[in-house]
């Protein structure tokens, strides 16, 4: 694995170095571009009841020399839907991928800052990536089921984690979990609202499903490892309106049990399904983060208002 993460990132030094950069960016970099507006710290403060599931502090990401994400700090509340919106290339997907360390897979990426999952630093050099990604699942932009049967797609994660044992040895030692697998497959598919459509063809290849079904299968696959947080990277962008509305209903349903963070280009979608919304604008900065109603009705920032009403770029 690439070793590009700043491994000395203890929380203290983080804050220090982070602050320096923050001052820099506030004084010099923010104003570059379309607006003279200065981002105020208060816009990004969002107060909510209860504990934060994820707390991000001073997160910076560089792809080579490109500073893709600048000093992002935000707290994501438990069992809610957080929408990340903003124009293309504003860093919201990069931000999302930082939350379960998927950016580790990009060799050129350098990440600096702190992300805590219920108080545990996930960028700790000794962090258990397997455990982290089991707790924070991810659904991608385009549906990406494995070229395997529907059943195998769902049980893939639990099998690889040793939660389900199948095969010759398991059978010989009487530890065959086929029944357990069946229950898990059924439960996950029902959670993803796909069970009724595929229950009679669980052994068919998943690539034979329609795009919307594939995406719900990917959600079910993610649910099967029993995560706490689900990250969704524009999960409905490749789908037609009917499939999209199904996914939206699903997200609302899921937020009762899980913490959902969703990236979307679709403003109406964000308004419909999310509890709070974070707006990223060009340059990888978090501009405003608040209740969804607040953001869509009376945003503090002029740029955010322009973006939401469609006047932006």
């Amino acid at each position: 694995m690439s070793n590009s993460i700043n491994t000395e990132a203890s929380t203290d030094t983080q804050t220090n170095s982070g602050q320096t950069i923050e001052t820099d960016s506030l004084s010099t970099e923010t104003t570059a571009g379309e607006s003279d507006e200065r981002i105020r710290e208060a816009w990004r403060q969002y107060d909510f009841d209860g504990n934060a599931k994820l707390s991000v502090e001073d997160l910076n990401v560089w792809y080579g020399d490109d500073h893709a994400l600048k000093d992002v700090s935000m707290e994501i509340p438990k069992k809610s839907v957080t929408a990340l919106i903003g124009p293309s290339g504003c860093g919201k997907s990069t931000y999302l991928r930082c939350l379960n360390r998927m950016n580790d897979r990009i060799k050129a990426a350098r990440i600096d800052g702190s992300v805590e999952l219920e108080g545990t630093e996930i960028y700790d050099p000794n962090a258990n990536l397997v455990e982290l990604r089991k707790r924070i699942g991810m659904v991608f932009q385009s549906p990406n089921p494995f070229p395997k049967s529907i059943r195998e797609n769902i049980s893939y994660g639990p099998r690889k984690h040793g939660d389900i044992n199948k095969g010759l040895l398991a059978r010989l030692f009487g530890r065959d979990d086929t029944a357990k697998e069946g229950e898990l497959v059924e439960h996950s598919l029902k959670q993803a609202a796909l069970w009724d459509e595929v229950s009679d063809r669980l052994d068919d290849n998943a690539l034979g499903l329609s795009g919307g079904q594939q995406q719900r299968l990917c959600i079910a696959r993610c649910l099967a490892v029993d995560p706490e947080v689900i990250l969704m990277d524009e999960p409905a962008s490749a789908l037609d309106p009917i499939a999209t509305s199904k996914i939206e209903d699903l997200v609302e349903e899921l937020s009762k049990e899980y913490t959902v963070v969703i990236v979307t280009h679709n403003m109406q979608q964000a308004a419909r399904i999310s509890d709070q919304t974070a707006v990223f604008l060009t340059g990888g900065e978090l501009v405003e983060y608040d209740d969804t109603d607040k953001i869509f009705e009376s945003p503090e920032s002029q740029r955010v208002e322009d973006y939401i009403t469609g006047k932006f770029g």
Binding site: M1, N100, M102, R105, L129, V130, E131, L132, R133, K134, G137, M138, F140, S142, N144, P145, F146, P147, K148, Y156, G157, K160, H161, C218, R221, C222, V225
Partner: peptide, 27 residues
């Protein structure tokens, strides 16, 4: 083999070797 498969597997917390064994090589 498309990188999407590797990403999907990694996002489920599956290690690289397991991914290679059960997704990449069969494909």
């Amino acid at each position: 083999v498309p990188d999407e498969y590797r990403d999907a597997s990694a996002a489920l917390g599956v290690t690289q070797w397991e991914t290679i064994k059960s997704v990449v090589l069969p494909a």
